[in-house]
């Protein structure tokens, strides 16, 4: 069996027939999956498999060539308040003039609303979230002084401050120290115990079994989606990480070079 896509019993999000292209070249083909509520979910696959692309597309950061995404059975725009996104640490300029507590407070902006200043309650929530990631001592620090692990914790605190129910995190374990990785994993497990769902882009197979309840294996197309035990098999991993889809790549390249549409209009 080269493919194993299981459906979640109580889906929190549904991806239907999703295709994403960069410069016409498809980087994700026909992804179709559901993810279970209250679990820690790992999105795994080799470099360039489209892991980050998948969660960005789900978060509406990329245009979809086809398909749709539903969260809590609604369109994302109707449930934004319940969904939180943690971008890759490297996507922002850490030399930006801001203090740690200012960045965490950004997680409250959509709740505060336009024109208004953060209320005392927002500031308390921000401090509380910093405490959860063990960074309260750094609240007044300038963000350029943080280490990689500390930056990641600040991003996490900002996401926590959004008080969402579904979290998407892009490579939160890249370039962080062991202590931070452990702290983040503990936090994720704590969150799922409270019924929150966390989707994490990850690429270390060694730790996957231990960290995740549910795993999505991806390599341009969806190879597997299901409970960790059923999905992390040698066969499915070989399918994800091994066999190159050379023909698929060549066809994609052709679409790009000849500027074909991805779907007939």
């Amino acid at each position: 069996m080269k493919k194993k896509i299981l459906q979640a019993d109580n889906p929190v999000t549904e991806v239907h027939d999703l295709t994403v292209t960069y410069d016409r070249k498809p980087v994700l083909w026909d992804i179709d999956l559901t993810l279970p509520k209250g679990s820690v979910i790992g999105v795994m696959g080799p470099n360039g498999a489209g892991k980050s692309t998948l969660i960005k597309a789900m978060m509406g950061l990329l245009p979809l060539a086809s398909g749709y995404v539903k969260m809590f059975d609604e369109k994302l725009d109707d449930v934004r308040e319940q969904v939180s996104y943690v971008p890759q640490r490297g996507t922002v300029d850490w030399d930006f003039p801001a203090l740690v507590k200012d960045v965490v407070l950004m997680g409250r902006y959509s709740k505060i609303g336009l024109f208004k200043r953060p209320r005392q309650s927002d500031k308390e929530i921000a401090m509380d979230c910093l405490r959860k990631v063990n960074m309260e001592a750094f609240a007044e620090r300038q963000i350029s002084q943080l280490s990689g692990g500390q930056q990641q914790r600040v991003f996490l605190a900002r996401a926590l401050a959004q008080h969402a129910d579904l979290y998407f995190m892009d490579e939160p374990f890249v370039g962080v120290d062991m202590a931070t990785e452990k702290a983040i994993v503990d936090l994720l497990q704590e969150m799922s115990a409270k019924g929150k769902t966390v989707v994490v882009v990850h690429h270390d197979l060694q730790t996957a079994r231990q960290y995740f309840d549910w795993i999505v294996l991806l390599n341009t197309r969806l190879v597997a989606s299901g409970p960790t035990k059923e999905v992390l098999t040698d066969e499915l991993l070989a399918e994800t990480y091994g066999g190159k889809l050379t023909l698929l790549n060549e066809v994609s390249q052709e679409i790009k070079n000849k500027e074909f549409p991805n779907r007939e209009e």
């Binding site: 509406g60 950061l61 934004r80 939180s84 971008p87 922002v92 300029d93 950004m106 959509s110 336009l114």
Partner: peptide
């Protein structure tokens, strides 16, 4: 002055601003 906090957020982290519904 009115949009200070929103302008700050889109300058620092556009993606996050977008996903948080701004």
């Amino acid at each position: 002055l009115l949009f200070f906090k929103e302008l700050t957020l889109i300058s620092f982290d556009r993606q996050f601003a977008q996903t948080s519904g701004l």
